[in-house]
Design a protein around this nucleic acid. Structure first.
Lengths: 154, 154
DNA sequence: TATTGTTATACTCTATAACTATA
DNA sequence: TATAGTTATAGAGTATAACAATA
C-alpha cells in the first residue's frame, strides 16, 4: 500500500505570527463570504448596517472611513441597501452635497439576521479553542489592531 | 476650534475575533508586501525558498501544495528564481514528466536575506505586545490554524 | 478652489481551462 | 486514459481617475 506523504507548510512560516495572521485572515474571510452568500447577503452590507446602528447621523464619507472602504465602493453598497428598503438617503439641508444615511425598521430586522450569521461563523471558526483561550485571543487581537489603526481603538 | 470627530469601527465588529483576524491579516499582508518589495523580492519567493530548505527532493506539485499555491502560479515563481540562479530544475529520470527542484548556494544566501526581512516585519508588527503575550498569541494562532488545515499542524 | 457623492476606467489577482509530454 | 508542468484566457475584486453638484 502506498502511504501518501503528508504535505506540510514549512515550520519557518508556521512559527511566524504574521504568516499565521495572513492565513487565518484568509480562512476567516472565505468562511464569512460563504456564510453571508448562503444568507443572500454580504459581509459589506452587514458592516454598513452595524455602523448605522451606532448612530444615524452618519454621512457617506464617515461610513466609508469607519469601515476602511473606498467612498466610491460604498455607493454601490448603499444603492442595493436602499433598493431593498433597508436604509434611507436624504440630502442634508445644511450642506446639500451631503447625504444623511439612516437605517429603516426593515434594516434593523435585517441586521439582526446578519448578526446571527456572523456569530455562527465566529462560533464555528473558534470551536477548537476553550472559552478562556478565545477570550485571551480576542484581547490580544484587539490590542494589536488598536496599535495599528486608531479606528480600531475602544 | 473644530475638533474633528474620531471615526471608529463599530464595536460590534471589533469584538468579533474573525473580523479582527481578517483586518489584521490584511495589515500583515500589506506590510509584508511592502517590506519584500523594498528588498526587490516577494513573500512568495521567500516561501518557496523556505520550503526547499526543508528538503530538496521536492517536486513542483508538492511545493505548490505545501504553500496552498496553484500549480500554474508556481511556474512563474520558479521561472524567476531559476533565472536569478537561486534554484535549479532537473528532470526526474524516474518520471520524465516531473521536475525535481533544488536550491543553489545563491538561493540559500538569498533565503537568509529574505528571512531577515520577514523577521523585521514580525518584530515591527508585534512590537506592542510583550514577549509573553506574543508567545501566547503565536500558540493560539498555531492551534487554530492546525485545526483548519492539516498542512498547518506540527 | 475644494469637497461630496457618483460614474467610468484600468489594473491586479486569482481561478479555470486548455495544451504538451510523458506515463 | 491519467498526470506533471506549462501556457492562455476569463472573471472578480480593487484602486484610480474623471465628473457634476454644491460649498
Amino acid at each position: 500500500m502506498v502511504v501518501k506523504q503528508l504535505i506540510r507548510t514549512p515550520k519557518e512560516l508556521l512559527q511566524s505570527p504574521s504568516f499565521l495572521l495572513k492565513r487565518l485572515g484568509t480562512i476567516a474571510k472565505d468562511r464569512t463570504v460563504e456564510a453571508f452568500d448562503s444568507a443572500g447577503a454580504t459581509a459589506y452590507s452587514y458592516a454598513v448596517l452595524a455602523v448605522l446602528e451606532e448612530g444615524t447621523r452618519e454621512t457617506q464619507a464617515t461610513i466609508a472611513d469607519s469601515l476602511c472602504y473606498d467612498r466610491s465602493y460604498l455607493v454601490g453598497l448603499l444603492d442595493e441597501l436602499e433598493q431593498r428598503g433597508l436604509i434611507e438617503r436624504r440630502r442634508d439641508p445644511a450642506d446639500r452635497r451631503r447625504h444623511v444615511v439612516s437605517m429603516t425598521a426593515a434594516g434593523r430586522k435585517e441586521l439582526a439576521k446578519l448578526r446571527a450569521v456572523h456569530e455562527s461563523v465566529d462560533e464555528e471558526l473558534f470551536a477548537v479553542l476553550t472559552a478562556s483561550e478565545l477570550k485571551t485571543l480576542q484581547a490580544l487581537l484587539a490590542k494589536l489592531a488598536a496599535a495599528q489603526d486608531p479606528r480600531y481603538s475602544d
